[in-house]
Structures are given as C-alpha cells and as structure tokens.
Amino acid sequence: MEIISLTHPLNECPALLQNKKLAVAIGHFDGVHRGHQNVISQAVQIAKNTGALSAVMTFLPHPKEVLGQGDQYFSCLTPPVEKQALFKELGVDVMLVMKFDLEFASISPQQFVDEVLRPLQAEHVVVGFDFTFGAKGRGNPELMRTLGSPDITVDIVEPLYENGEKVSSTFIRAALEKGDIALATTLLGRPYEVEGIVVHGDARGRTIGFPTANVGLSKPYVTPCLGVFAVKAKVAGKTYFGVLNHGMKPTFNKEEIRPVLEAHLFDFHQEIYDEPISIEFHSFIRSEKRFGSVQELIEQIAEDAKQAKHFFGLA
C-alpha cells in the first residue's frame, strides 16, 4: 500500500496517481471500527469492479483537535501507523493523508470537490451517511453528489447499529471508559490494542512474586478505565497471556499520581526493558482498589491471574 501526504490546494495530481482513476473512501476513521470497515470495503469493491485504484483519504491531525472541539481528540483509538496496517488488511491500494489546518478548514464544499477530489482524479467517492466537509461542515453527502456530478459518483453508506446505538468512535471510547471490553471488541471487530515500550518501574512486582512489564505508551491512546484486565501481549517476537493493572497502585502510593500500565505475563521470565510491546485488552476483571496489606494484594493478584487463565481457557 502506498502512502501519499497531501496539502491543499493540490496544484497537480501526485506522480503515483497520474493517469490513474480512484475509488476513495473519505473520513478520519479513528478506530477503523466495523462501521468504518463498511465504508472502506465498499470503496475497495468499487475499485475492483471498475479497474480503479482503491484509496482512503484521512486527515491529520484530527479536525476536531484543530478546531478546538473537545480535549478527547488529543487521544486516539488508532494512531496513523496502526490505521495504515488496518487499511492494508482491508485491501486498500493508497492511503491519502490530508494535512488538516485552519486554512484547509476554511475552504468551501465546492473547493473541496474542485481543488482536492478532481485533481486526484477521483471517479468514485464513498462516505458515511453523516460525513461533512467544507467550512463549518456545510457540506454533506448529498451536496457532494451534486457538486461532483457528472464525473464523480458518490456512494453513501448507511450507519451500522449495535444494541440500538450507532457504531462510532465515540461509542467505543465510552465502552472503554466503562470497562466494557466485550462491547469495545464487538464494535471494533477485533480486540482493542495499544503499543509502547517496556520501561523501568519500581520493581515491586518481582519482590512479591508477580514481575510486571511496565508499558510506556508510544502514542496518546485512549486508555480503558482503571482496573485489572485479561490481556494478550506481543513482545520479543512472541505472544503471551497475562493480567494487566491500569491504575495508581494505591496499595503502595498514598498520593495520586499518573496512571500506569503494568502487565504480568504468564510463564515469562525474560528481561525486556526498552523492547516494543503491544497489549490487547480481552476482558475486564475488576476495578482497582487499595488493600490493607501486601499479603492481601498478593492473594488478589493470584485470583486475578486465575480468572484471566480461565477466560483464555488455560486453566
């Protein structure tokens, strides 16, 4: 899959796309959840049927971040590198990354079609039913159809629902915040995953018989609620089952500090400091709590590990 960075206005078609026709799905696609996958897969199928290249156009940074419409968008479900991998899995030929700044945010819907889509030689566009474009979101899919006619066709994908609610990045964020990992997994179509580096902690875990890998996140991910989770970790070329605590370590820390992610991996005995690690969240076990003694903590961690092993069918 090719990756092309774009800046408005497009004075000419990028070299890789010259003399090519595009079927392009447009959106920010944070999460690349099942609803997003429907939009992208439709563009991929149209490309196959028409002999065009399939493309995804996304925006960096998040438009709502640039426009100051909510602090939550400084965190993400899928950083650009992970989006890239997910788009590739869906069969996309080209990832178009449009720089989103205040200048681009001020263009009209007509300019978006004439100064972005037409220079890209987009023949087919696929968007979700609630897609907006142009200054102050004045453009909608029906207007894009009108402005794109007759050379650009626009397909509008209807929403996907789960439990009566539209599948969306906001819905997934809310599920993670509540610790509803099963729902987040259903909405995404895969387990929620974060990536980082194994960093040095206070090494207390090994002193009580449960050594942990402290995860320093590599990107500003959305993180689940505080608590204990059954997880899978990919590190040093292998996958391990384990339990992860996301919290303040209240048994040891009397003052509130920044939350940490600590994973205890089953049957793992290597030194992995500074190694890349990815964590998949599979099940919520319990909320974080303070214990009256270290012995109570040890007993609870053993019970947490037992529950995680049962969830994964290991015991």
Rank of each mutant, 00 (worst) to 15 (best):
I3V: 14
I4H: 00
P9V: 13
L16E: 14
K20T: 10
K21G: 11
L22W: 09
A23D: 02
I26M: 14
G31F: 05
G31C: 01
H33Y: 04
H33F: 02
Q37V: 05
I40Q: 03
A43N: 02
N49S: 15
G51Q: 08
S54N: 07
L67D: 13
L67F: 13
F74Q: 14
S75H: 14
C76I: 13
P79L: 14
K83M: 12
Q84K: 14
G91N: 10
G91L: 12
V92M: 09
V94S: 07
M95H: 11
M95V: 04
L96I: 00
K99P: 00
K99L: 04
K99I: 04
F100N: 01
F100V: 00
E103S: 12
E103Y: 07
E103F: 03
I107T: 00
S108R: 06
S108H: 02
F112Q: 06
R118E: 12
P119S: 15
E123N: 13
V127E: 02
T132W: 00
F133M: 03
F133H: 10
F133S: 09
G134P: 03
G134K: 06
N140P: 05
N140W: 03
P141N: 01
L143P: 01
L143A: 01
S149K: 11
P150S: 07
D151W: 06
D155S: 15
V157D: 08
P159T: 08
E165F: 09
R173T: 12
L176N: 05
E177A: 12
L187W: 13
G189H: 13
R190P: 05
Y192S: 10
V194H: 04
V199F: 04
A203L: 12
T207H: 04
F210I: 01
F210E: 03
F210S: 02
P211I: 02
V228G: 06
A233G: 04
A233E: 01
G237Y: 03
K238Y: 02
T239G: 02
Y240T: 04
Y240K: 03
L244I: 09
N245A: 04
K249N: 11
K249L: 01
P250C: 03
N253G: 00
R258T: 10
R258C: 02
R258E: 10
F266Y: 07
I272G: 06
Y273K: 07
E275I: 09
I277Y: 12
E288D: 14
K289V: 15
V294M: 13
Q295M: 15
L297K: 12
L297Y: 14
A302Q: 13
E303T: 11
A305F: 00
Q307N: 10
A315G: 04
